[in-house]
């Protein structure tokens, strides 16, 4: 019931996204004629290109067409890529999703461990050094960190490729090698966020009565942390992971460009810069769906972790 309601409520979210996208495209000056016609194209040629792609029609008519096709399950055809929008987006989605997933897994595992360690050893050198580590992670711009990794591991040491993507279906080891640096770059900054949040919510929980009682009863630190405190501290941690998943999509845009990965993020950025409107429109809708799904999972986890949240709805 809860899930069904949440799925239904995704519809207005997607509507908001697609309407905003249309608004933006209406605001953005320039169109595909620049990319195809170049600097020397005469006004007649530009007009002919616009006509070919139906760009001379009013925005409302184009919107009506687009939504009409959408209801028949058609996302349209790219102006430039010689393929349908669905093909273009879905062939890229695995790259972005696997990058984001790898990044999130790495960031969560290390972030949560670091955070717990810091909270349990509150005010010790362990706490301080892991928090300084987390802060440094947070403080370094990720694209810059990625460039440094390329130079160190790609150029100086020559251990890993400097960029490019190998599909997992083609060569598993090649995929691992091509994803290592991007995932590390992505995880490094997000790890800091998760570690900090884990630490502060763990500290909150560790300070509450029932934990004190447990401690007073002589339970081992291990049992207290993993049986009692972590479960209660998970609500904000899951929130941050959900948020991080969203940030990871954004982060993936940047990482994809640094490491030349053909992901959805770069597809959309490129399409904005080239004014390939159908791809922008379809790509944002698909990433929005992914996002809604991630949030749904996060909310289900909430409900599971803290029944009060579910009852509130």
């Amino acid at each position: 019931m809860f899930v069904a309601r949440r799925l239904l409520s995704a519809i207005p979210v997607l509507a908001v996204v697609s309407v905003i996208t249309f608004l933006l495209m209406w605001l953005i000056p320039g169109d595909i004629s620049a990319e195809l016609g170049g600097t020397e194209a005469t006004p007649e040629i530009l007009e002919r290109i616009r006509e070919q792609f139906g760009l001379n029609k009013p925005i409302l008519e184009r919107a009506a067409q687009w939504y009409g096709a959408l209801f028949q399950g058609d996302l349209g055809h790219s102006y430039l890529l010689n393929r349908s929008v669905a093909d273009a987006v879905f062939e890229r989605l695995p790259v972005t999703l696997s990058l984001a997933a790898l990044g999130l897994v790495l960031a969560s595992v290390f972030g949560v461990l670091l955070g717990i360690l810091a909270a349990v050893r509150h005010n010790s050198w362990v706490d301080q050094s892991s928090m300084v580590g987390a802060l440094i992670g947070l403080s370094i711009p990720d694209f810059w960190f990625g460039l440094v990794l390329i130079i160190v591991f790609g150029v100086l040491l020559g251990w890993l490729p400097t960029g490019g993507y190998v599909p997992i279906t083609e060569d598993f080891l090649g995929w691992v090698r091509s994803m290592t640096l991007p995932a590390l770059t992505l995880a490094f900054t997000q790890m800091g966020v998760i570690a900090r949040m884990t630490r502060s919510s763990m500290l909150d929980v560790l300070d509450q009565d029932f934990i004190r009682t447990a401690r007073a009863k002589g339970m081992s630190a291990y049992t207290v942390v993993f049986k009692h405190a972590l479960r209660n501290a998970l609500v904000p941690i899951v929130t941050v992971m959900g948020l991080t998943a969203g940030v990871l999509l954004s982060g993936a845009v940047v990482i994809e460009s640094v490491f030349s990965l053909p992901g959805v993020g770069r597809l959309i950025v490129g399409s904005i810069q080239r004014r390939d409107f159908p791809i922008i429109q379809g790509g944002l809708l698909v990433t929005a769906c992914v996002f809604v799904f991630v949030n749904l999972v996060v909310d289900i986890l909430y409900g599971w972790l803290d029944p009060r949240v579910r009852n509130e709805r």
Binding site: L147, I150, T162, G163, S257, V258, F259, S260
Partner: peptide
């Protein structure tokens, strides 16, 4: 396609 000139040279 490699966008970054630095990454191009590295490659």
């Amino acid at each position: 396609v490699i966008v970054e000139p630095g990454a191009q040279v590295a490659a």
